[in-house]
Deep mutational scan, measured.
Amino acid sequence: VSSEIYQWVRDELKRAGISQAVFARVAFNRTQGLLSEILRKEEDPKTASQSLLVNLRAMQNFLQLPEAERDRIYQ
């Protein structure tokens, strides 16, 4: 997982004009609270716990989908 993931998520929230709650639900089936905590802490993926890595990997995989497909999912 790239250490850029945190910025990618922030950029996607702005680009798509969606809330953290929507992104958390569709990208990795978690709550806004968890996403907020992940973004606030910005732990280095190289030293992250296994559970954090699973979530970061799910977010990264979601962000690799084509933009149009992500936008459809947000609706």
Rank of each mutant, 00 (worst) to 15 (best):
V1W: 00
V1T: 03
V1F: 04
V1G: 01
V1P: 02
S2A: 08
S2E: 06
S2K: 13
S3D: 15
S3L: 07
S3Y: 10
E4V: 07
E4R: 10
E4Q: 13
E4K: 13
E4M: 15
E4H: 11
E4G: 15
E4C: 15
E4A: 12
I5N: 01
I5D: 03
I5A: 00
Y6E: 00
Y6Q: 00
Q7N: 15
Q7G: 15
Q7W: 13
Q7K: 15
W8T: 15
W8C: 15
W8G: 15
W8L: 15
W8P: 03
W8H: 15
W8D: 15
V9D: 01
V9S: 01
V9K: 01
V9T: 08
R10V: 11
D11N: 15
D11M: 15
E12K: 03
E12C: 04
E12Y: 00
E12N: 00
E12H: 06
E12V: 03
E12M: 01
L13F: 06
L13E: 01
L13G: 00
L13D: 00
K14M: 07
K14C: 10
K14I: 11
K14Q: 14
R15S: 01
R15L: 00
R15T: 04
R15Q: 02
A16K: 07
A16M: 04
A16E: 02
G17C: 15
G17Q: 15
G17F: 05
I18C: 08
I18Y: 00
I18G: 01
S19F: 02
S19A: 06
S19C: 07
Q20S: 09
Q20C: 05
Q20F: 04
Q20R: 08
A21D: 14
A21H: 10
A21T: 14
A21C: 06
A21N: 12
V22D: 11
V22I: 12
V22E: 08
V22S: 09
V22G: 06
F23L: 04
F23K: 03
F23R: 04
A24Q: 14
A24P: 00
A24E: 14
A24V: 01
A24F: 04
A24G: 05
R25H: 15
R25Q: 15
R25G: 08
V26N: 01
V26K: 04
V26S: 13
V26M: 04
V26E: 03
A27I: 07
A27K: 03
F28L: 13
F28C: 09
F28M: 14
F28P: 00
N29L: 06
N29Q: 11
N29C: 07
R30L: 05
R30K: 12
R30A: 15
R30N: 14
T31P: 07
T31K: 09
T31R: 07
T31I: 00
Q32H: 13
Q32R: 11
Q32L: 04
Q32W: 09
Q32G: 12
Q32F: 07
Q32T: 07
L34S: 14
L34F: 13
L34N: 15
L34V: 13
L34T: 12
L35E: 04
L35N: 03
L35I: 06
L35H: 04
L35G: 04
S36L: 07
S36Q: 14
S36A: 13
S36C: 09
S36T: 12
S36D: 12
E37T: 09
E37V: 02
I38Q: 01
I38A: 06
I38E: 03
I38N: 02
L39K: 02
L39I: 05
R40C: 10
R40V: 08
R40T: 14
R40P: 04
R40F: 10
K41L: 10
E42M: 09
E42H: 10
E42R: 10
E42G: 09
E42A: 11
E43W: 04
E43Y: 04
D44E: 06
D44K: 06
D44R: 04
D44G: 03
D44N: 13
D44P: 10
P45A: 03
P45N: 01
P45L: 07
P45C: 04
K46Q: 12
K46L: 12
T47D: 08
A48N: 02
A48M: 08
A48W: 01
A48L: 05
S49C: 15
S49L: 04
S49A: 10
S49Q: 11
Q50M: 13
Q50E: 15
Q50W: 07
Q50Y: 12
S51H: 09
S51E: 13
S51W: 08
S51C: 10
S51Y: 06
S51D: 13
S51L: 06
L52M: 12
L52K: 08
L52A: 08
L52W: 03
L52H: 10
L53K: 07
L53Y: 08
L53D: 07
L53S: 09
L53H: 07
V54P: 08
V54M: 14
V54I: 13
V54A: 13
V54K: 12
N55M: 10
N55T: 08
N55C: 13
N55I: 06
N55Q: 12
L56H: 06
L56G: 01
L56D: 00
L56E: 00
L56Q: 03
L56Y: 00
R57V: 13
R57D: 09
A58S: 10
A58R: 11
A58V: 06
A58Q: 13
A58Y: 06
A58M: 13
M59I: 14
M59S: 00
Q60P: 02
Q60I: 04
N61S: 10
N61P: 01
N61Q: 12
N61T: 11
F62T: 03
L63M: 08
L63Y: 01
L63F: 05
L63D: 02
Q64W: 10
Q64C: 11
Q64A: 13
Q64D: 14
Q64R: 13
L65Y: 09
L65Q: 14
L65P: 03
L65T: 09
P66F: 00
P66D: 07
P66V: 01
E67L: 10
E67C: 11
A68I: 14
A68V: 14
A68D: 15
E69C: 08
E69W: 04
R70M: 01
D71T: 05
D71V: 02
D71C: 02
D71Y: 04
D71P: 00
D71A: 03
R72A: 12
R72D: 12
R72C: 12
R72N: 07
I73F: 12
I73M: 10
I73D: 05
Y74A: 01
Y74K: 01
Y74E: 05
Y74T: 01
Q75N: 13
Q75W: 08
